[in-house]
Simulated scan of single mutants.
Amino acid sequence: MSIASRELTAEDHELIAYARRIVDANTDGDGGVHTMGAAVRGVDGRIYGGINLYHFTGGPCAELVALGHARASGARELSTIVAVGNLGRGPVGPCGRDRQVLFDYHPGIRVLLPTEQGVRSVRIKDLMPLGAVWTVEEGTQEFDPTLFTDR
Rank of each mutant, 00 (worst) to 15 (best):
F56Y: 12
R20D: 15
A10Y: 03
H13L: 14
D104E: 08
R76L: 14
R6M: 12
E137I: 01
V43R: 10
A66M: 09
D30F: 10
D98L: 06
G90C: 07
T9F: 06
R151G: 11
S2E: 13
P107F: 04
V40R: 03
P94Y: 05
R110F: 02
N26L: 09
H69Q: 09
D30P: 06
A66P: 04
L64V: 14
R120T: 08
G93E: 10
H13D: 14
M128L: 14
N52L: 02
R110T: 03
R110K: 10
G59T: 11
D126E: 15
G74P: 05
R20L: 12
P94I: 10
T146V: 14
I3E: 09
T115Q: 00
H69D: 15
I124Q: 01
G49V: 05
A19C: 08
A25E: 13
D150S: 15
T135H: 04
F148A: 09
R20G: 04
G85C: 06
T140V: 15
D28L: 11
A83E: 05
P91S: 11
V122C: 04
N86D: 15
T146C: 02
Q141P: 00
A38E: 09
I47Q: 03
D12Y: 03
L130M: 14
Q100A: 12
L102Q: 02
T149L: 13
V23H: 04
Y105G: 07
G50M: 09
R21A: 15
R71W: 13
V122P: 01
D24A: 13
G45W: 08
L64H: 07
G59A: 11
A70Q: 11
E63N: 11
T146K: 13
P145S: 12
R151W: 07
R110I: 01
L8N: 06
E137W: 00
G85N: 05
R89E: 10
V133C: 00
T135R: 12
Q117Y: 06
G58F: 09
S5V: 14
R71Q: 13
G50V: 09
G31N: 13
G74S: 07
N26H: 11
Y54P: 11
L15K: 10
G90A: 07
I109M: 10
G37D: 07
